[in-house]
Design a protein around this nucleic acid. Structure first.
Length: 798
RNA sequence: GGGUCCGUAGUCGAGUGGUUAAGACAUCUCCUUUACGAGGAGAGGAUCCCCGGUUCGAUUCCGGGCGGGCCCACCA
């Protein structure tokens, strides 16, 4: 017999059982249709936070639902290990003096430590991951596959090495990609500088970056700017550094800003890059990779911020600083280290994006996006692409770029496929340069982390070695991910997989929103609105926390964490538990039969079928809010509040066909409910299943199928009338401060002839449920409303 | 500046071209009732942001405001 609901004990028990039984093992030889989840490989940070809970709950709801619906589900798990944050952690702990080899080793150690704390949290949450399908981007075999993908793309002309202005983080001393750039609002000074005319007028130039004066190669004005009509073509002298530069005209100059004249330096910002190329201006290397000035005479070696101060002082002394005012500016910063980004001309490796925009758009059009409007985020990003993807990073902890190049002619030498993975910083090139015969230089840069993670659909489907598996599983079914990484993970994956296989990588795009704190802001420790998953589990249990993921809002919306959602889920689970307890006691394990059912039995069956239909459709469309609220409302209100009360008098009585029919219906309704609740709350449903239904797992049961023939509007409307009468009788009791089980001597139903007749058919039930000794009818002839009903009660004598 | 999502009781949030606009939390009244007081029966609480238009009918569709979130661009 069922005892009290104890979430913690149940969770532990089933977690261990499932693990022991390999309950969620994927079988490639299965004849069932496949359902493949391209699980995000998280970056190991040590904490599985609420965003992850939401993301993984969405996947697990789908995985469990699909398994029960007859699919062979592949739910793998990877770890995206390489990256700057790990390097920072390791640097902090061990200092900067480790050799490359030792440093890498420490990074690996740290990664394994952290995965070791995250994995148990994921297991605790009951995600039905097949852990035998786990992968790590730090594995040599993963390196091999990534390098192979680059080799393939190089051979088809998609990868190249070139000198180009790139976004560069001088703090990390590495090139970065556009997708890694964030904005930061900041207050700065706009400085008016005097540029003396050489063969023309003096100019006032407004700049926020006086430290780039030495790299100034021209001054630009708008062609239609009357003020400078005679200045174009003349020269001015750059203050302090004294080089003479031409005054040119360009339509991109904003006449309204500052003095309307702008200095062009290589490279203050993206616009400077555009101008430098457009006007074929000379390029002065303004600073080195560490952000120290070069070619700046006396200022060489100073960091940009120091140089700015010093130069402003010198300008002031020389009387060339005409004025200063505060302005708000958006500074581009590196998303990892939050330090300002520079444009530097540098030799890097690129993957060609330009020219493939339409392929990506086309692929995205073939996918089902949930919610649909998220598709636009990808399209917008693709349309805004300006440059190719810079994939080389001057860091240590990452996959080596598998290339050598000739120091003289720049010819690229690639490794033999069979020798992968390679590390060109140590390994010898397979051959010398064909043109110069020189020994090539091994590339020391590593890959952008998105290079690693943008082939996950290929990795999980066996590419490139296991052709049989690949044919069966690729393209994969669903890519679940957050809205924040559409421009990176979704974009790079779609693009790379397209180039590597010619096919879009997945058919469904399931997008989840961001988890916000209860103040409506993004959850973060510094804002104090942070909630740890383990606290919620400790207080409310996994099954309740998982329901929060569905209840926090419809799919794709940002989800605010409110404790009340968790508490509500907890109450619901308690309700399910206690109702099961009642049903177990009332019906035991009474076998299914076909005893004559009452109207209320038919009603609840009809409601059940509609709930099965709606919940199933919602789950198919990844609409978890809809699915769970429909289920909750059905079970809590229809089953518990109404139906259980309807049948109590029957199951409390002696054995009879009427009692049997009620018992059969109770068991039938609970069985379907538990199954539908199983994806959301797998532990408690498993426990109840074993108490009431069977010894095999609920998670391997067949999903309830919708039986349209059991939907019956006639029974529903009669039952609704019955419940309306009950409600009025209860109201009477409540208003007269009576207990609900007080017996009333009589009641009269006033209604249309049809309704009275229907009520007369169910009067035995009504009298028993409401505890009324005598029931009378008052027929209203030609009633306006056929379904209106009014009950008058008589109070018992006291 | 462009795109996109959104604006619904005190709070949060579904949803809909059509009698009375879900549900939860909160509030109020009543009920210890043999599954559950983490419960039950009831009650009150909404100009569905504003202005137009389409329509027999708009909270829903269209246009324009206002307000907010996110993305992109600009930011010398």
């Amino acid at each position: 017999m069922l005892d009290k609901y104890d979430a913690a004990t149940i969770e532990k028990k089933w977690r261990e059982t499932w693990e022991k039984n390999d309950a969620y093992k994927f079988r490639i030889q299965s004849k069932k249709p496949f359902y493949v989840i391209d699980t995000p490989p998280p970056f190991p940070t040590g904490e599985f936070h609420m965003g992850g809970v939401l993301n993984w709950c969405y996947m697990d709801f789908a995985a469990r639902f699909k398994r029960m619906s007859g699919f062979e589900v592949l739910f793998p798990q990877g770890w995206d290990c390489h990256g700057f944050p790990t390097e920072v952690k390791v640097e902090k702990k061990y200092g900067k003096n480790l050799s490359k080899e030792e440093f890498r080793k420490k990074c690996l150690e740290w990664t394994h430590d952290v995965v070791g704390t995250m994995k148990p949290q994921m297991k605790q949450l009951g995600f039905s991951i097949d852990w035998s399908q786990e992968y790590y981007t730090i594995d040599p075999d993963y390196h091999r596959k990534v390098q192979y993908s680059l080799l393939k793309m190089f051979n088809q002309g998609d990868v190249y090495r070139a000198e180009h202005p790139v976004l560069f983080c001088t703090y990390c001393r590495s090139a970065i990609a556009k997708a890694e750039v964030d904005d930061l609002a900041q207050e700065g000074f706009l400085n008016d500088l005097k540029f003396e005319g050489v063969n023309g007028p003096n100019l006032t130039i407004a700049t926020t970056r006086p430290e780039l004066l030495h790299a100034t190669v021209a001054v630009a004005v708008h062609p239609s700017d009357e003020r400078y009509k005679n200045a174009v073509g003349k020269k001015v002298r750059v203050p302090i550094h004294d080089q003479e530069v031409p005054i040119i005209s360009d339509v991109d100059v904003d006449k309204e800003f500052g003095s309307g004249a702008v200095m062009i330096s290589t490279f203050g910002d993206k616009q400077d890059v555009v101008w430098a190329y457009r006007h074929k201006l000379p390029i002065v290397k303004a600073m080195d990779h560490a952000g120290r000035l070069q070619n700046a005479g006396a200022y060489d070696g100073l960091k940009a911020t120091q140089a700015k101060e010093k130069i402003l002082e010198d300008l002031k002394t020389a009387g060339l600083l005409l004025g200063q005012k505060k302005i708000n500016q958006q500074v581009k910063i590196h998303d990892r280290c939050k330090k300002p980004i520079e444009f530097l001309s540098s030799t890097q490796w690129f993957i060609k994006l330009k020219g493939y925009e339409n392929d990506v758009k086309h692929a995205s059009a073939q996918m089902r996006w949930v919610p649909e409007h998220m598709r636009q985020l990808l399209l917008d990003w693709v349309e805004g692409l300006e440059w190719d993807w810079c994939i080389s990073r001057q860091r240590v902890f990452g996959i080596p770029l598998p290339f050598w190049y000739c120091p003289d002619c720049g010819d690229v030498i690639t490794p033999d496929e069979k020798t992968l993975p390679v590390d060109p910083s140590k390994d010898k090139a397979p051959r010398n340069c064909k043109q110069c015969g020189k020994e090539p230089v091994g590339e020391t840069s590593i890959c952008d982390g998105w290079v690693d993670s943008s082939i996950t659909p290929l990795i999980i489907s066996g590419w490139p070695d296991n052709e049989n598996r690949f044919q069966k599983l690729y393209p994969v079914t669903v890519r679940p991910q957050g809205t924040d990484i559409i421009r990176t993970w979704a974009f790079y994956t779609t693009y790379r997989c397209l180039r590597l296989t010619g096919q879009a990588p997945f058919s469904d795009m399931l997008i989840n929103g961001m988890v916000l704190g209860d103040d409506g802001k993004k959850m973060s420790k510094s804002l104090g609105n942070y909630v740890e998953a383990k606290d919620v589990i400790g207080k409310a249990g996994v099954d309740a926390l998982r329901q929060w993921a569905a209840l926090a809002g419809s799919t794709g919306k940002d989800n605010v964490f409110y404790w009340k959602d968790v508490t509500h889920a907890q109450s619901f689970l308690n309700k399910v538990w206690n109702a099961s307890k009642f049903i177990q006691k009332a019906a035991g394990s009474h076998l299914k039969g076909t005893h004559q059912k009452h109207v209320t039995d038919h009603w609840i069956e009809s409601r059940l079928q509609k709930t099965i239909r709606d919940t199933t459709n919602s789950l198919k469309n990844y609409q978890y809010y809809e699915a769970l609220t429909a289920l909750q409302s059905f079970f809590w209100h229809d089953v518990c509040d109404l139906y259980l009360e309807d049948v109590k008098h029957r199951v409390y009585g002696d054995d009879s066909p009427s009692k049997r029919a009620a018992q059969e219906t109770l068991l039938e309704v609970l069985e379907a409910t538990l199954k539908m609740l199983a994806p959301f709350s797998p532990f408690v449903t498993e426990e109840l299943w074993h108490h009431l239904y069977g010894n095999d797992s609920i998670h391997s049961q067949k999903w309830p199928s919708f039986q349209e023939d059991l939907v019956n509007e006639q029974y529903e409307s009669v039952a609704n009338a019955l419940h309306e009468a009950l409600s009025q009788i209860r109201k009477f009791k409540a208003q007269n401060a009576m207990a609900l089980n007080v017996e009333l001597p009589s009641a009269t139903i006033k209604a249309s002839e049809t309704l009275c007749k229907q009520m007369a058919d169910v009067q035995d039930d009504l009298k028993a449920i409401a505890k009324i000794r005598a029931l009378e009818f008052d027929v209203v002839q030609n009633a306006e409303k056929k379904d209106a009903l009014e009950v008058t009660c008589t109070a018992p004598r006291t």
